[in-house]
Structure formats: structure tokens, C-alpha cells
């Protein structure tokens, strides 16, 4: 009896379409949602807050605010997507392909501002700081003058 069931299964497998694929000659399309690796969309949108570095469970992102640099190790990354979900400017995206085969698994992907952009950013920051300092100085001076004027007026009144 069992031979009929087994025979049925065998004949069906012999004459139906093969369920396997002739890889590597035929490669299946990766699904759109597949999780492979992370990349940054545009470095100019990044505010270097460091949330992605804090949330990564595999320690594969390093954010350097002073140097305006974002470094990523694709071979340490486990493609969980925590950084993509937590970025406040939505500047990270999940790509669907795994990183390419290589012999050096400490390679990094670095995004940083160019030298002119960094210099420009530093200059703007310096200008802002100078302006803020000047405004604080002016305010202090005005307050000191006002106090002196009040004391003079009070001294006159007391002297009277």
C-alpha cells in the first residue's frame, strides 16, 4: 500500500516543473523590502546628533561632530534598521542588497563635508559666536550704564 503513495509522490516529482533554480545562471530578484545595508542620503541634511551611533546594537556607526564625518562599517552591521527609524532628519535609508564580497571586512563607508564646506561651516560658526559675544557685551555695557545713571540719580536724591 505504501508503495502506491510513495510512487505517486515520486512520479509527480519526476514530471512536474523543477522547484529549484539554476543558480548562478538564473538569479532571483531581491524583494523590495529586503534588508541589506545602510547608506546616508545626503550629508548636508545630517545634523551630527549621534542618535544612530547610540542606537546601533552592533557599534557599526561612528559620528564625529567636530570633523563633520559619518563612518559606517558595513560588515559589522546586522541590518536591523534601528538607525533608520531613529534619525531625526530621516537621512538614512535601507538598501536591499548586501555589501559586496570582499577580503577586507574592516572597510568603511565615510560621508563627510568637503574641505571648503567645512571651512565655510567653521566660518559661519565663528561669525555667529562673535556676533553673540558682541551682543552680550553691548547688553552688559547698557546695563552697567543704566545702573550708574540710577546710582547718580539716587545719590543726588539722597544728597538733597
Amino acid at each position: 500500500m505504501g508503495v502506491f503513495k510513495l510512487g505517486g509522490l515520486t512520479l509527480k516529482s519526476l514530471f512536474s516543473k523543477r522547484p529549484t533554480r539554476r543558480y548562478p545562471y538564473e538569479v532571483r530578484e531581491t524583494f523590495d523590502n529586503a534588508r541589506g545595508q545602510i547608506d546616508m542620503i545626503d550629508i548636508h541634511n545630517c545634523i551630527f546628533c549621534g542618535m544612530c551611533q547610540r542606537k546601533c546594537p552592533a557599534d557599526s556607526i561612528v559620528v564625529d561632530k567636530a570633523e563633520s564625518r559619518w563612518t559606517y562599517w558595513p560588515y559589522k552591521c546586522v541590518a536591523c534598521g534601528a538607525c533608520v527609524a531613529v534619525c531625526p532628519t530621516k537621512d538614512l535609508e535601507m538598501l536591499k542588497d548586501r555589501p559586496p564580497i570582499t577580503t577586507d571586512n574592516k572597510t568603511t563607508r565615510v560621508h563627510e563635508l568637503t574641505e571648503e564646506e567645512k571651512a565655510e561651516k567653521a566660518r559661519i560658526a565663528a561669525e555667529k559666536k562673535a556676533a553673540a559675544l558682541a551682543a552680550a557685551e553691548a547688553k552688559k555695557k547698557a546695563a552697567a550704564e543704566k545702573k550708574a545713571a540710577e546710582e547718580a540719580a539716587g545719590g543726588d536724591a539722597a544728597g538733597e
Binding site: 524583494f31 536591523c80 534598521g81
Partner: peptide, 21 residues
């Protein structure tokens, strides 16, 4: 699994606070 969450065996879909996808 792969179509919906992106992973075949380890799918990082469940998280503290609900379901991520």
C-alpha cells in the same frame, strides 16, 4: 517573511512598543 519584513530567518520585526512594519 522576506516580502513583509525583509529577513528570512531573523526579521527584526518585533520591538518594545509593538511591531515595526
Amino acid at each position: 517573511f522576506e516580502e513583509v519584513t525583509g529577513g528570512r530567518v531573523i526579521f527584526s520585526a518585533c520591538d518594545v512598543g509593538g511591531f515595526r512594519q
